[in-house]
């Protein structure tokens, strides 16, 4: 059965407790009247299936441990922050820091994403059908950020071992980026991530961005590269 959670002006703790109780019973959950409130559906358990009417505020789906989460329209800052498992779909625009420090799982954004998409992510995949914002991938350790509609300025800035894949225009590259030609095997790996989302298109001209590794070890002769402004 589907459990309806009405958000409105209620205290966020009360709302999230109601969501957790419904998830523990195994109900499918529909959250309505969200009013773009913050912190909705944080720490959801494995197996939970939940959808949010309209838009949500900051940190929706944060610390997700396996839930399948759908946001109809926009998400504010840091959707899926720190998630370790699960799948989040945002129907519209996702704000700053999508999947910040996420460990695993998938975040799928159907619109554009804001600045610092995938900041400090440690694993998992972020797929953005539109454009990713300024400084996306900033200091990302591992995992893939895949943008199908281009990237803003300072793309893939100061990466660790994560990869930023962009189809479309990149406004500018960040500090210490290597743009490499992906092998057919690597493209097949990305297509395997896109396939369940119905987004495979073999005509894409990919740019794969990885760390130049110069900033991984500080050398005084590189000091100017550390000054980003």
């Amino acid at each position: 059965m589907t459990h309806i959670v009405d958000v409105g002006e209620r205290h966020i703790r009360e709302i999230n407790e109601e969501i957790q109780e419904a998830a523990a019973r195994g109900d499918e959950i529909r959250v309505v009247n969200t009013l773009s409130r913050h912190n909705l559906g944080v720490g959801l358990p494995d197996g939970c299936k939940i959808s949010f009417e309209g838009s949500v505020g900051y940190y929706c789906g944060g610390l997700n441990t396996g839930a399948r989460i759908e946001v109809e329209r926009n998400a504010g800052w840091a959707v899926g922050e720190g998630m370790s498992k699960g799948h989040i779909t945002v129907g519209g625009y996702a704000g700053m820091s999508v999947g910040a420090a996420m460990i695993n799982g998938t975040i799928h954004v159907k619109g554009d994403a804001g600045p610092r998409c995938g900041v400090a992510m440690k694993g998992g995949n972020i797929v953005v059908e539109g454009k990713i914002g300024y400084q996306s991938g900033f200091m990302a350790h591992q995992g893939k950020i895949i943008a199908l509609g281009g990237a803003g300025e300072s793309c893939a800035d100061a990466l660790w071992s994560a990869e930023v894949w962009v189809a479309g225009d990149v406004d500018s590259l960040g500090v210490d980026v290597n743009v490499v030609e992906p092998t057919a095997e690597e493209v097949a790996e990305v297509d395997a991530i896109l396939d369940p989302l119905g987004l495979v298109d073999s005509s894409r001209n990919w740019r794969k961005m990885v760390a130049g590794e110069r900033l991984w070890y500080f050398e005084s002769r590189d000091a100017s590269a550390w000054l980003m402004i």
Partner: peptide, 20 residues
Amino acid sequence: EEQAVRRIFQGEEDVINYDG
């Protein structure tokens, strides 16, 4: 925050994010 402008416009109006 979006939740503030939704106090004024509660329908399906699109929001513009000046995020760059």
